[in-house]
Design a protein around this nucleic acid. Structure first.
Length: 545
RNA sequence: GCGCCCUUAGCUCAAUUGGAUAGAGCAUUUGACUACGGAUCAAAAGGCUGGGGGUUCGAGUCCCUCAGGGCGCACCA
């Protein structure tokens, strides 16, 4: 509907001698300013150094609008032109909700684009903590948003199963195995002290037999390496699965070494003249591409830095045919972005290819006090601790309430409360209440069909609700473009507020037949939007609570 | 010292990416249950958007500057 209006406004702009003028047509913040508003007259007036309100009058004179599109216009404020949509537009929009049903809110503008969303990618050295949880909720929701807008999405997890931290892990597990078998042993310097490795050690002894602890150190550590990675990965996968997050592809750093992909990438960079030797190390000329210093790929001792396999990994994603690659990283890695961008630019990839979404730190708070320790990990609060206490729905909702770039205080007490202090119940209850209407009426929501008769909806609340529902696709669209799932969360909370108010002040069952039918149609549409929005965020929409 | 992010109501956060009178929830005060779920609703109060300057019809949003907080500044990952 807004496309028609936009086209007509462009035509008028051209006619007034301003072809291709950049103006905005948008839904005003304030409902009192109409359904759509444009600043066209103000932009025109600036160019002509004219009075914007006078210009607005001229625009309105030129504007030819079909009466079934726009019911009313006005000139307001400094020169805005406000439009009120005709009722036929609203009932048509309502029909779209029922027709699309579970797919309402989806769009196709991303069709043909292959997108890789890589998130969590925790080191396999311990349980996932709450920060990973935020990354998981955010990455999963971004992936869903991109799917909803037509993109072909792959959810990917990258395992750093090579490098020194894995050596430490192997040595730590081996030490725990020896301890469990009754031998004196110490966790090495910089090793992992968490309780979970004791559990793993017991598992290993149970699986492999007690004589495992008597292996020569070298062999014991070597076998502990594989065992530790496998056990940690299995646990992480369980934690994620129970959190409602699954991955399409899991890529291992070690595999990149083994397959020669790292060597090929180094050769590729060298063949393009992007590397040089200095002070015994191999450097990448990232400064030519916006980084503030060149970066080491191979250290003086002959081993590779983390950057080398990481570039290889992104080359691999490129070679797999992705048009866009989105990495969700912890904010503490932000300093790493320029060098990765520089490396990929050096390889000639489009600047649109690679993008990073940063997730800021999560502080877990209980009654105003920061919680630092988990019984399990001994160092940090695990993701599982968190969602087992507050529930998966509440955890995901809280993670998606704010944008990832702002630090988050996760208040455990608040998320647990089944009261009005907890926004997740507010939204879910709106859905459950709507369902309650159908339950009381003993009708399936899907059985209420037909055209929405606006004349049978006398209350202001009816129109307010309908207009809010119709905004949903726009919200999804924006959230997907900006990669900001919290826009959906905020919208759902607002919608829930409108649903509660509508429910409280109007009645459905027992009203005059035409009104009852119209309100049931409205309730069905609201139920669809709430349920779709929650589904998008990976949160359940209960029929009763 | 340099770089990035953040700073909005007492608290936790929004604000259609430069739009009109900066909005919600919680907390506070007041009111509403013989009606589809009161886990709700309605109302009041709460703001120099950290301070200062600039850009323009118009700034929470862009630029400069200062202050406070976080995170980076590796031949760690």
């Amino acid at each position: 509907m807004s496309e028609t209006l936009r086209a007509e406004l462009s035509r008028v702009a051209a006619r007034l001698g301003a072809d291709g003028l950049d103006f905005v047509l948008e839904r005003p913040r304030d409902a009192g300013h109409g359904d759509l508003a444009t600043n066209l007259a103000m932009v025109l007036a600036r160019r002509d150094r004219a009075n914007p309100r006078k210009t607005a009058e001229r625009v309105l004179q030129e504007l030819k609008l079909p009466p079934d599109l726009i019911a009313r216009t006005e000139i307001a404020g400094p020169g805005f032109i406000n439009f009120w949509l005709a009722g036929t537009q609203l009932s048509a929009a309502h029909r779209k909700i029922l027709d699309a049903d579970k797919e309402y809110g989806q769009a196709r503008w991303g069709a043909g684009l292959k997108v890789n969303v890589e998130f969590v990618s925790a080191n396999p050295t311990g349980p996932l903590h709450v920060g990973h949880g935020r990354g998981a909720a955010l990455g999963d929701a971004i992936a869903s948003l991109l799917q909803w807008t037509g993109h072909a999405v792959t959810r990917e997890f990258y395992v750093n199963d090579a490098g020194v931290q894995i050596d430490k892990l192997a040595q730590s597990l081996w030490a725990r195995v020896r301890q469990e078998a009754g031998y004196p042993a110490e966790i090495p310097e910089g090793g992992y002290h968490g309780e979970y490795l004791r559990e793993n050690a017991r598992q290993v002894l149970a699986q492999e037999g007690r004589q495992f602890a008597d292996l020569p150190t070298e062999e014991g550590v070597r076998r502990c390496r594989d065992l530790a990675i496998r056990l940690q990965r299995e646990e992480q996968n369980r934690d994620l699965k129970d959190f409602g997050v699954t991955f399409d592809v899991i890529t291992s750093e070690q595999t990149a070494y083994d397959s020669g992909s790292v060597d090929r990438t180094l050769a590729l960079l060298a063949s393009r003249g992007l590397t040089y030797e200095s002070e015994g190390a191999l450097w990448l000329r990232t400064t030519n591409f916006g980084d503030d210093k060149d970066r080491v790929l191979r250290k003086g001792d002959g081993t590779l830095t983390y950057l080398a396999p990481d570039i290889a990994y992104h080359v691999d994603k490129h070679d797999r045919g992705f048009d866009r690659v989105i990495d969700v990283w912890g904010a503490d890695h932000h300093g790493y972005i320029p060098r990765m961008q520089a490396a990929l630019a050096a390889l000639g990839y489009s600047s649109e290819f690679f993008d990073v979404e940063l997730v800021q730190l999560v502080r877990v708070v209980r009654g105003g006090e920061e919680v630092r320790m988990s019984k399990r990990s001994g160092e940090f609060v695990t993701l599982r601790d968190l969602y087992e206490e507050v529930g998966v729905d509440a955890a995901r909702y809280f993670f998606l309430m704010t944008k990832g770039a702002t630090p988050l205080d996760f208040d455990v007490e608040k998320a647990k409360k089944q009261t009005d202090e907890n926004p997740i119940f507010y939204v879910q209850m709106a859905h459950a209440r709507l369902n309650g209407i159908f339950r009381t009426a003993q009708r399936e929501p899907d059985s209420v069909t037909g055209e929405l008769d606006l004349g049978a909806l006398p209350a202001l609340e009816d129109t307010e609700l309908l207009k809010k529902l119709v905004q949903f696709p726009e919200i999804v669209d924006k959230a997907a473009r900006e990669r900001e799932p919290h826009r959906v969360t905020v919208y759902l909370h607002e919608l829930a507020g409108i649903v509660h108010g509508w429910y409280h002040r109007t009645r459905t069952l027992g009203e005059e037949a035409s009104t009852e039918r119209a309100r049931l149609l409205l309730a069905r549409a609201a139920r669809i939007v709430l349920s779709n929005g929650l589904a998008l965020l990976g949160i359940s929409a209960p029929d009763r609570m």
